[in-house]
């Protein structure tokens, strides 16, 4: 009995997790571990449990006559039913060129947007530290073509559209009146969004000297060697 309730809750949580993972493709596990994301999963799990409770109160059997299977049929319907209900819109309102759905989906959209903002804010600091650390010795002029090409080569299946977008961003950076340090950071940020922190770090480590900034020339020693 308790297993059915647990599975129904898990259904809801998994659907919520899939939504969050789709929003944060670079490091989905980090996004899922934040408090707002956990709250969103809990909300989806509770919706599924609520749906299961309603189904049981009204005694809907879904046409299944075997009593052993009826409970599981109710679990599946509750899991997917809550998902469909929460994401449904009853009607739409047009405001200018925008179409605004009215219904439970609107509420979920607002919740998801606030989760997204919170997760993004929380991860911005972490991302800044990581990028700064990974790209600290990288020379933008050496890396802006080689590093993305190598990362995309590692991934193998990055869509052409994403590659085109990235190419445009890099061309913009290459011509921008900014210091190479900031350009390197922006290159790292954009790459991290596409390939994730681990792939970026591995690529920087593998390319090593090819993209590393030249060390500053050694300062001339003030003491001169005695001339015998």
């Amino acid at each position: 009995m308790w297993l059915e309730w647990a599975v129904a809750g898990l259904f809801g949580a998994l659907i919520g997790a899939a939504e969050i993972v789709s929003q944060f493709r670079d490091e989905p596990d980090d996004a899922l571990r934040t408090l707002p994301a956990l709250g969103y999963l809990l909300f989806n799990a509770l919706a599924s449990l609520f749906a299961l409770a309603i189904i049981r109160i009204f005694g809907w059997t879904m046409g299944v006559e075997d009593p052993a299977l009826t409970g599981w049929a109710q679990v599946v319907v509750a899991g997917f039913g809550a998902m469909a209900l929460l994401r449904a819109s009853i009607f739409t309102v047009r405001e200018g060129e925008r179409v605004i759905p009215i219904g439970p989906s609107r509420f979920l959209e607002v919740v998801l947007a606030s989760v997204k903002d919170s997760v993004d804010r929380k991860r911005a600091e972490q991302r800044g530290i990581s990028v700064s650390d990974i790209m600290k010795d990288v020379d933008f002029q050496k890396a802006w073509v080689a590093l993305p090409a190598y990362c995309f080569g590692l991934l193998q299946n990055l869509p052409q559209e994403e590659q085109d977008k990235f190419g445009k961003k890099m061309a913009l950076l290459a011509n921008a009146p900014m210091s190479d340090r900031v350009k390197s950071l922006l290159l790292g940020l954009s790459l991290m969004n596409l390939v994730g922190e681990k792939v970026l770090a591995t690529a920087v480590r593998n390319l090593d000297k090819e993209i590393r900034a030249d060390p500053p020339p050694p300062q001339e020693s003030k003491t001169t060697s005695p001339n015998f």
């Binding site: 073509v145 993305p148 090409a149 190598y150 995309f152 080569g153 193998q156 299946n157 990055l158 052409q160 590659q163 085109d164 977008k165 990235f166 190419g167 445009k168 890099m170 061309a171 913009l172 290459a174 011509n175 921008a176 009146p177 900014m178």
Partner: peptide, 25 residues
Amino acid sequence: SDDFGSFLWSVQQAVHQRKGQDTPM
């Protein structure tokens, strides 16, 4: 190409087109 050819192609095109144009920045 589906590895990184699109990226290289796009960079090549964009760099030539955008030389000296700083309006986007």
